[in-house]
Design a protein around this nucleic acid. Structure first.
Length: 489
DNA sequence: TAGCTCGTTGGACAA
DNA sequence: TTTGTCCAACGAGCT
């Protein structure tokens, strides 16, 4: 009897899981999830005193709790849950089950790649076959290079000439039939014993906004593909810019945990859309951005802590903890920024356009280190991903892979007027401004006193004064950025 | 090697 | 109110 251990990691799904399919084809399967205690490991000290570790954020833990619970149910309660070092636990399980093979999906975070290499060597020495399959990226990071063999640094050529010209992504696989290895002596922890659910009050409310399961992921994808214009893929090119509309896929957390594969998302519109449809093209290019982030992380393992453009290492960020706290808690005095930061805290998610606005505000208007923003998102966002989160923060800070001019600074007032013109999104998350007329909703500090009075707003009491003036702080940012040395890495 | 084009998402201001 | 132009400048990527 041939026994294979499938080690679940960021591939918490049964369908389109090449490594699990391989295990199922070989014989009996022992599915295992190992919670590796990373606290205190992989710490990376930045020059600004920011402690950045690879430990899971609170939102990640909460999502994982529910994701494992649904996976356990999908696997008919056969998922073995353990806690500790993966190398040690895989060794234990091999001894207990007599498994001759381990399958797993490739992960790309630098600390994971290192662990994988060690485990691969040790298992091979024991005569165990190990299969690491590509399941979570459409193209392997090292596979896409320029003609001279070096990695791309600009998205468009990476995606158009690199990815699209290479080969189409493989077609998704069906859910395999699994013959489980069963033995009462194989012990497993309960999900509660993994202690992933933070004891904070917000957790249940946050989790109730999502169906955290593989089925939930597929349902989200179907809703997005089949929704009528402008609330789904049919109106994606334009609709995705408006935070009050349900016009984005909201697949990011599912992709992060592998409850859906990018291949499934890539091909889901086939049969419903013209292959040349602009909306489909833009949606796929968003999947391309995810690939690009992994490509950058692969070529720059210190992406989380070190600016990709080395000239930024000397940048003089301000040290203003009260400003950081006001940004985190949605008390900056700029309603669109505060709405975004409160959406993040209340739902574990933030609309993409709003992410750019709050990011630009932190880095450009407040001149605070982008790594503070990255760390806060890492803790609060369900979809916080080792590649996308860091690459995107570097992008908005201007120190990453963005060739655009440094003077691009988002104006939180005009962005609000443009993309939330009726104020629906902003009023939802900043209810103390619910009665402000739209004309002054995004800049209540400009409103005449009688307008404020009628809206029941007292600046400094019911809603804060702005932390900084956007015009003044924009010019200050331009000065700082212009002073950077010309030559770069 | 030289030269050319282009770069996810912008803002301010003038006409 | 809308549209066009400039900001001020450079590296990536390709031919």
């Amino acid at each position: 009897m041939s026994v294979t251990i499938h080690w679940f990691r960021n591939d918490l799904r049964l369908s389109d899981n090449p490594a699990l399919t391989r295990a199922a084809r070989t014989g009996k399967v022992v599915p295992v999830y190992i919670l590796e205690d990373q606290t205190g490991k992989g710490k990376d000290q930045t020059p600004f005193g920011l402690q950045q570790s690879h430990a899971m954020g609170e939102a990640t833990k909460l999502w994982l709790h529910y994701a494992l619970s649904s996976l356990q149910s999908d696997l008919q309660d056969k998922l073995v849950l353990r806690r500790g070092s993966a190398e040690h636990i895989l060794g234990e399980l091999i001894d207990e089950t007599g498994a001759q093979q381990v399958t797993m999906t490739r992960c790309y975070a630098p600390h994971q790649s290192e662990t994988d290499r060690n485990i691969e060597q040790k298992l091979q020495r024991k005569g165990i076959k190990i299969s690491i399959e590509t399941g979570n990226l459409l193209w392997e990071p090292e596979q896409i290079t320029k003609q001279d063999g070096t990695p791309y640094k600009v998205f468009t050529p990476f995606y158009r000439r690199g990815c699209l010209a290479a080969h189409p992504p493989r077609q998704p696989l069906p859910r395999p039939n699994i013959d489980f290895y069963t033995d009462k002596k194989i012990s497993s922890l309960t999900i509660d014993a993994l202690d992933l659910k933070p004891s904070l009050k917000w957790t249940d409310r946050v989790a109730s906004e999502w169906d955290i399961s593989e089925t939930g992921a597929q349902a989200a994808l179907q809703r997005f593909i089949l929704s009528a214009h402008p609330d789904g893929l049919h109106g994606y090119a334009e609709g995705r810019n408006f935070p009050s509309r349900p016009a984005t896929s909201r697949l990011s957390p599912y992709l992060k945990f592998g409850q859906i594969s990018p291949h499934q998302a890539w091909y889901a519109a086939d049969g419903h859309f013209n292959p040349a449809d602009k909306n489909l093209d833009i949606f796929r290019s968003e999947l391309g951005w995810r690939e690009f982030s992994y490509h950058l992380l692969h070529t720059h393992p210190h992406l989380k802590t070190k600016p990709l453009q080395t000239k930024f290492a000397q940048f003089q960020w301000l040290n203003e903890p009260e400003h950081l706290r006001a940004w985190q808690t949605g008390q900056t005095g700029y309603p669109i920024v505060d709405a975004g930061m409160r959406e993040l805290y209340q739902t574990g998610y933030m609309h993409n356009r709003i992410r750019m606005i709050v990011g630009s505000f932190l880095v450009k208007n407040l001149l605070l280190d982008w790594r503070h923003g990255e760390a806060w998102f890492w803790d609060c966002l369900f979809d916080a991903d080792a590649a996308s989160n860091t690459a995107s923060w570097q992008w908005i800070a201007g120190c990453g892979a963005d060739a655009a001019p440094y003077f691009r600074v988002f104006n939180p007032v005009t962005q609000g007027q443009k993309f939330d013109s009726d104020g629906e999104y902003t009023r939802r998350y900043v209810p103390e401004l619910a009665n402000m007329p739209s004309k002054y909703l995004f800049n209540p500090f400009d409103a005449p006193i009688d307008v404020l009075r009628r809206a029941g707003v007292t600046l400094g009491r019911s809603y804060p004064y702005p932390l900084v003036d956007v015009k003044v702080s924009r010019l200050r940012a331009l000065d700082h950025f212009a002073a950077l040395p010309k030559s770069t890495s």
